[in-house]
């Protein structure tokens, strides 16, 4: 099989994952899109391993490791999401702007309330 097929599929899947990370509002959906990106990388690794056929089988090994790390990451990520949800009451990335510079002009009440919540909590 031509190497281009899996390589292009991986590239496209990766881009879809990028879109999802940047465009979705719910944090869990963002995590899902990160999983897509990781899977694209896995596909790439497996395809190149099949192409290169090295004795170390580095591609497949790394794929296994990537899968493991991804699982760990999503576990921790969801824990953080739950914590955030508990304290802020929302799982929207848009509203988690406590680290931003406060803007006097923009009439955004939620981030300011979030800022005050943050200060109260911290």
């Amino acid at each position: 099989m031509h190497l281009v097929y899996p390589a292009v599929l991986a590239a496209l899947l990766f881009s879809v994952g990028v879109y999802g990370v940047l465009a979705r509002r719910n944090v869990v959906l963002v995590l899902m899109s990160v999983e897509l990106m990781l899977n694209a990388v896995n596909l790439n690794l497996v395809a190149f391993d099949a192409w290169l056929r090295d004795s170390l089988h580095a591609g497949q090994a790394l794929t296994l490791f990537t899968i493991t790390v991804a699982a760990a990451e999503i576990g921790l990520g969801l824990a953080i999401v739950l914590l955030v949800f508990r304290t802020r009451g929302t799982a929207d990335i848009d509203r988690l702007t406590a680290l931003g510079d406060p803007n006097e002009d923009a009439p955004e009440s939620a981030p300011e309330a979030a800022v005050q919540n943050d200060r109260a909590v911290a």
């Binding site: 099989m1 031509h2 190497l3 390589a7 292009v8 496209l12 990766f14 940047l22 099949a50 192409w51």
Partner: peptide, 24 residues
């Protein structure tokens, strides 16, 4: 950004692996 990334990656990949086949 996604389209740009896709375009770049696909172009790069296709150009680089035009003549590579996987022996399955």
């Amino acid at each position: 950004v996604a389209l740009a990334a896709a375009g770049t990656l696909v172009t790069l990949v296709v150009d680089a692996f035009r003549t590579s086949w996987v022996d399955l």
